[in-house]
């Protein structure tokens, strides 16, 4: 979670709020923040660290591991209408890549601002070409985009 905290300012500039969730109590969250995370990120964790000791939130999001009694690494991007636009679930030993999450947020924000008239091709980064789906583009994507454009 310190990797997300480290990019929090950037997320705030994009209008993104962060909530982290685990089965630990909010008291343990405080201990983890005070004793370890503050050593990784200046000022510690700036966002809500939610506690889900009964696993009810985890069940609702499909990330509850009932054998271990823990929550898997589920990451959800929720839009201003409260709709889930993206989700990723990893088993515990592999960490997320926050840069990819930020890229997806930027892509979804562009799509939303375009009113759904634009789409972002594979590997899209801010400033790259977008696609404008419509009758003229059918069978013609090759003219404007190819895999070598994905960095």
């Amino acid at each position: 979670m310190s990797a997300v905290a480290d990019r929090y300012e950037e997320l705030q500039e994009l209008g993104v709020e962060v909530i982290s969730v685990s089965v630990d109590s909010h008291f343990v969250h405080k201990m983890w923040n005070d004793h370890e995370l503050t050593k990784m990120v200046d000022g510690g964790i700036p966002f809500h660290m939610a506690s889900d000791q009964a696993g009810n939130i985890g069940r609702a999001y499909g990330v509850w591991d009932e054998n271990e009694g823990i929550e898997l690494r589920g990451r959800f991007i929720i839009d201003p209408d409260g709709v889930i636009q993206a989700m990723e679930v990893l088993t515990p030993p592999v960490g997320r890549r926050i840069a990819e999450t930020i890229r997806q947020v930027q892509a979804y924000q562009l799509v939303r601002e375009s009113g759904g008239t634009e789409a972002t091709p594979a590997g899209w980064e801010p400033g790259d070409l977008t696609l404008k789906p419509g009758p003229d583009l059918v069978g013609k994507v090759w003219e404007v985009w190819n895999p070598s454009m994905e960095q």
Partner: peptide, 17 residues
């Protein structure tokens, strides 16, 4: 509501990743 939200679950405090 009205904002983008990044919701992140993780296995537990004081774990290694």
């Amino acid at each position: 509501a009205g904002k983008w939200v990044l919701l992140c679950f993780y296995p537990g405090d004081f774990t290694f990743v």
